[in-house]
Structure formats: structure tokens, C-alpha cells
Amino acid sequence: MKIVLIGLASVFTEGMTYQDNLLANQLRYDGHEITIISECYKYQDGVIVKTHEEDKVLPNGIHLVRIKYRNILGDFISGKIRAVKGLYNILEQECPDIIFHHGLQSYELLTIVKYKKKHTDIKIFLDSHEDFNNSATNFLSKYILHKMYYKYIIRRVLPYIDKVFCVAYESFDFLRQLYGVPDNLMEFYPLGGIILDESIREEKRIKIRKKLMLKNANILMVHSGKMDKLKRTDEIIKAFMQVKSDKFRLLLIGTMQDDVKKDIFPLIESDNRIKFLGWKNGDELLNYLCACDLYVQPGTQSATMQNALCCGSAAALYPYSSHKYLLKDSVFYIETINDMMNLFDDISRNPEILEKKQIQSNKLAHEILDYRVLASRLFK
């Protein structure tokens, strides 16, 4: 089957462990012909940079096409309109059976529907990563961009859409309230991860823990991403420092934003159990997640959490509705800095509670988060 995945605000970057990469890789592994169509932006050392148009085949056989935004009043406005040149012609050349468009906020949804009107047998899936925590957060964004421009496009294309996938539980309300997407068209479709063979996972775990000079009794915590105030990295460190267990180690992996550097680096330097590793590519991050015992994410949501669970780690997360809906009691929930401190203290006194959560979350990962399971849902 031929599947075209379109992400015009996804910042597709080769080698990452985001949904764009992992879903495409799994579909390709399952034997389908895959084309990714992306805008001309990517991550470089954790920073979004503009890149050039290209048309190439990746090492795993996936066809990657990058196309530029149409220039509409400069880069900022172009990046909100999300109109590109030549998408219809590319679709005609690819002849897809399924089109999966990441996001509902794009002018090019009109182009995709134009293609479906001519090729009525194809299926169109959209997914939404948006909620009121990360989108429509000010007046202009909510009432001009979302409730006028995007809503106008979405209402025109909905009759031709087969399914709208919501990657977070909060996305359902966002789509209902801002665009009027009907409930019968929406389906929960969480971000997932890759579950490695146990022998491979264990090999990666042993290698990284040896590199970090950890003993079997050491408990390794990992926190990752673009670390800013909303990530609450400083609170994690402060809570961690209050629990003096020599068994604990904390790794910070990602980029440190300017608004938190001056506060966080002195804390790191004051506790030799804490290390900041900087930016790591997808494969490197996966290795550290395999070595991790507890993934800590009390701030903004990140797809790395699902990858951590798929690598066998337990997780401590903010109790977002989407987390509680998806993960139920298979993870720890931490809302305040005291919650973090109490959890770390409980684990130091009774490591068995950590092992119990690892077993629960690993079971859930196999059943729900494995991209082999998620990819198969496109054909049901």
C-alpha cells in the first residue's frame, strides 16, 4: 500500500524519535511504500533551522520530499498560513492509497481534499497535537488564526475526512470548541514508541550504565527536552537534592534555554550526582532511556515519555487529563515540588515501588504505545 505522510509544521528531522519518524519507519518496516512531505525546517543541535528543498530516498527506503512555504508577507505569516507550491502534482505522482496529514492547521488541507474528489477511493487521516495548553493562547491566535482562518478551512474539508486522530485527551475539547469537529469523527491515537527486543534493550542498558559508572543498585532518573520554565527542570533538581541517597543519579538531556540557565547550572554544579549531557540525537537518547529507571516529566508534555515507557522505564508525570486517561495508575503523578521530593524519598526507602510501576507501564506500552500496534490501526 502507498502511504503519504504530510507534515507542514512538523520540523521533520532525520534520526529523531518523534511520531513523524517512528510511525513512518514502522509503516515502511511493515512493507508499505512511504513518502514523507515536509516543510523546509529541521532540528540542528536542538535548534530549529531553515533548510533547502530536496527530494531523496532515505536509507530505509522512505521517500522524503521537502517543499518551501509560499512566501506570504514573510516567514512568520507563511509559517501560519502553511501553503506550499506543487503539493497536488506530488500527490498525482505518488498515487497514495492513504494520506496522513499531521495537524489540522494548514491551507493545504484544501489541496488534499481536491485530490480526493478526483480519487474517491483514498482515505484521509488527520491528527491533532493541539490543546489549550499549547495553542490559541492569546487573542489573535485564538480568534483570528484558529476561529477564523483555520476553522474556515477545516469546516470545508471535514466531509471528506475519514478520521481525526487526537494524540492527547485534551485535544478533543480543543477541536470541538474551536472548529466544531464532531465526536464521531475523532479517535484517541496516542504518541507511541519503539519496543526493542529484550536482549537489545538490555545490551544498551548495560553499555550506558557502564559508561556512567553505575552499579546495579543505582537508580537512574532522566529528564529531557527543551528545558525552560514550563519544563520545571529547576524544581526537579531542587527536589532531587533534598533526598541525599547515594543510589540516585539524575541526567538532564536536551537544550537549556536562556531563561533558566543562570538558575539551573549552579544547582547542577553543587551536586555531583547530577549531569547535564546536552543535546542527543534520537538513537543516543534511546540508549539513555534504556538505561533509565525513572523518567521525570512534571512540566510540559513530551513524546519522549512514551519512548521511555517503551524502553522499560517507570515515569513520574504531571497529572494531565491525557496522562490519566491513557496511563491510569501505571505511572507516578507529581504536581508540586513536594510531590517530587516525597516520591524520590519513597523510592529511596522502598525501591520495590519503582519496580512495580516499571512492570505496569511496560505492559501498557506493549498493548497501546507500541508503534506496531498504532500503525496497524490505520488499516482497520
Rank of each mutant, 00 (worst) to 15 (best):
I3Q: 00
L8N: 05
T13Y: 08
E14T: 07
G15C: 12
Y18G: 13
Q19M: 10
L23S: 06
A24N: 01
Q26A: 00
L27Q: 02
L27D: 09
G31M: 01
T35E: 01
S38T: 03
Y41W: 13
K42Y: 00
K42Q: 15
D45E: 14
G46N: 11
K50R: 14
T51E: 12
H52I: 06
K56M: 12
L58D: 05
L58G: 03
G61L: 02
G61E: 03
H63I: 04
K68Y: 02
R70K: 15
D75G: 07
F76L: 12
I77N: 10
K85Q: 11
K85N: 14
Y88I: 00
Y88T: 00
L91F: 06
E92I: 07
E94D: 03
C95G: 00
P96D: 06
D97S: 01
D97A: 04
I99P: 02
F100T: 00
L104F: 06
Y107V: 05
V113F: 10
K117I: 02
D121Y: 04
I124H: 03
L126I: 07
S141T: 03
S141N: 12
L145G: 00
H146P: 05
M148F: 14
M148K: 13
R156S: 10
I161V: 14
V167N: 07
E170G: 05
E170M: 07
E170T: 03
E170Q: 07
D173H: 13
L175F: 02
Q177I: 11
L178R: 02
Y179E: 00
G180V: 05
V181Y: 12
N184F: 11
Y189H: 13
L191R: 01
D197V: 05
S199K: 15
R201L: 15
E203Q: 13
K204N: 15
K204M: 14
I206Y: 12
I208C: 11
R209T: 07
I219H: 01
D228P: 07
I236G: 10
I236N: 08
A239M: 09
K244V: 06
K247G: 02
K247L: 13
L252E: 03
I264R: 04
L267K: 00
L267Y: 06
R273F: 05
R273E: 08
K275W: 01
F276R: 03
W279H: 15
N281E: 08
N281G: 05
D283H: 12
E284K: 10
C292G: 02
D293T: 00
Q301R: 12
T304P: 09
M305C: 10
N307F: 01
G312F: 08
S321K: 14
Y325V: 06
L327N: 05
L327Q: 02
S330L: 05
S330E: 06
V331W: 12
I334L: 04
T336I: 10
I337T: 14
N338H: 13
M340H: 03
N342V: 03
D346C: 06
D346W: 05
D346Y: 03
I359V: 15
Q360C: 09
K363E: 14
I368E: 14
D370W: 11
L374T: 03
F379S: 01
F379T: 02
